[in-house]
Amino acid sequence: MKPIISLQNVGVRYKRQGNVFRPANYFDALKSINLDIYPGETLGILGRNGAGKSTLLRVISGIIQPDKGKFLNRGASVSLLVLQAGFDPNLNGRDNAILSGMLQGYSRQEVEAQLNEILDYSELGEFFFEPVRTYSTGMLSRLGFSITTITSPDVLLVDEVLSVGDKHFKEKAERTMIAKIQSQQTVVLVSHSHQQIARLCDRAVLIDEGVSFATGDPHEMLSLYEQRLEMSA
């Protein structure tokens, strides 16, 4: 099977903006990443804070281009799962749903056709037509998650499996996410929860200091990761 996305020796270097008192300097967020993503798989990305996971997701989603190495996407649509993308507190739930859906790449007509499903899923009732600034945190995240349920790119990037809303909605969202991750869709999953990576992923890749140093069975990668954490501790 051919990978749909390949990264070969990918590096990304940021410029830290300078000013009159401090010159600009550079920072290598990714040094050498080798990674293949195969259709239909769930790939876990393991790494501590600052290992370069977010930068890597940005490269995979095509938002930035690497400074060195090769990044190859064989025609897959990729998107990051974003909760409450572009929410405006003064607009009601319905308008925010339309806007958020359109920001994720759908036409207005497509999103409007899904509004009833979004409303049903969110269980917001009449609140759907109230400005979201009047929402509780739980309601806000319910609306945010409900909008993401309509999205279905070829490759879905998930940064932390979401835990949203009250207990009941949390379970429902978790079920939806897990069903989505385990479906034929290709998913790249970043999570701090080791258990989650082990439970959900086919393969895992370990990243530390911008280098992907091991890829393989999630259980093996997890024990390797823990060894590495201990070593540096």
Binding site: S77, V78, S79, Q104, G105, Y106, S107, E110, Q114, E117, Y121, T149, I150, T151, S152, P153, D154, E174, R175, I178, A179, K180, Q182, S183, Q184, Q185, R199, L200
Partner: peptide, 25 residues
């Protein structure tokens, strides 16, 4: 996962998300 979430979490038919829309990005 089925043990944890109940057998109906994975429908027998190929997984259909609420919508089949593909983002055009």
């Amino acid at each position: 996962l089925m043990h944890q979430y109940g057998a109906d979490i994975f429908p027998n038919t190929p997984q259909t998300p609420i919508s089949q829309l593909k983002g055009k990005k």
